[in-house]
Amino acid sequence: MSLGHGAKRAARKAGNSQVLTNIARIGFAASGLMHLLMGYIAVRIALHHGGESDQSGAFAQLTRLPSGPMVLWAAVLGMGALGLWLLLQASLGIGSSSKKRWARSLVSAGKAAAYFALAWTALTFALHRPSSSTAATRNASGTILSLPGGQALLAIVGMATAGIGGYLVYKGVRKKFLDDIQLQGNRADPAVIALAMTGYIAKGIAIIALGVLFIVAAIKISPQDASGLDGALKSLAGLPYGQAILIAIGLGLMAYGLYSIIRARLARL
Rank of each mutant, 00 (worst) to 15 (best):
T137K: 04
D179R: 15
L269M: 13
A90G: 11
S260N: 15
I164P: 00
K176I: 08
I207W: 12
F214K: 00
S222T: 14
G83E: 08
I219A: 03
L20Q: 07
A103R: 12
F59K: 03
R138F: 07
S131G: 12
A117C: 11
A42Y: 12
Y40I: 08
S98A: 05
Q224C: 09
L195I: 01
V76E: 07
G110K: 04
A126S: 00
L195N: 00
Q224K: 11
I207A: 10
P190Q: 05
K111F: 07
G252H: 05
I26T: 15
A244N: 07
A255Y: 04
G257N: 06
R174H: 15
P130F: 09
A74D: 05
A90M: 07
A140W: 14
A226E: 01
I221A: 15
S108N: 09
A112C: 06
L47K: 14
G80T: 01
I201V: 14
K176V: 11
L92W: 01
S141P: 11
G80V: 02
A237M: 07
T137S: 09
I207D: 03
R12E: 14
Y115W: 13
M1G: 13
L229C: 02
G172F: 00
S53Q: 12
L195F: 03
I261F: 13
I41F: 03
R187A: 13
A75P: 05
Q243W: 13
V71C: 10
S235A: 13
A217K: 05
L118Y: 08
V43R: 02
A81K: 01
K203I: 14
M159N: 10
A202P: 05
L47Q: 14
D225T: 13
